[in-house]
Amino acid sequence: MKFAIALYSAAHAPSSRRALRFAEAALAGGHEIVRLFFYQDGVHSASSNIVTPQDEQDLAQQWSTFVSNNQLDGVVCIAAALRRGVLNNDEAARYQRPAVNLQAPWELSGLGQLHDAIQSADRLICFGGP
């Protein structure tokens, strides 16, 4: 089964963790994740500048590791990311901003990537809210 997983909440939201646990279970069950698409506040779940207290879960780090280790296609919506100050090298340079907080394995791209994922997946699963 091919899954497209869309996340709409920041790393500190329980739904971000839930999405990650679902994604792990999907791969463990032998399924394929055609793309992870982070939209709205989900762009914060991809931020590389989150500092979590040591005794708490670092979800953004866990997401990044999960995507890298499984060589997944992790796409962050560029319009949603710019609006929320989640910038990679290119965008920070383009808009002359002092900080970069989006790095590999994440890629910035447009909403077309969400539609493309929906077209190639058997199921779209969205996570967001609390």
């Binding site: 939209y39 709205q40 949603a80 609006r83 447009g110 909403l111 077309g112 969400l114 539609h115």
Partner: peptide, 19 residues
């Protein structure tokens, strides 16, 4: 907030791809 607009953006993007 921008929730309604960002929902609409998904619709417009889909329309642009003739979906």
């Amino acid at each position: 907030g921008i929730n309604a607009k960002e929902a609409l953006d998904i619709v417009l993007a889909g329309g642009a791809f003739d979906l």
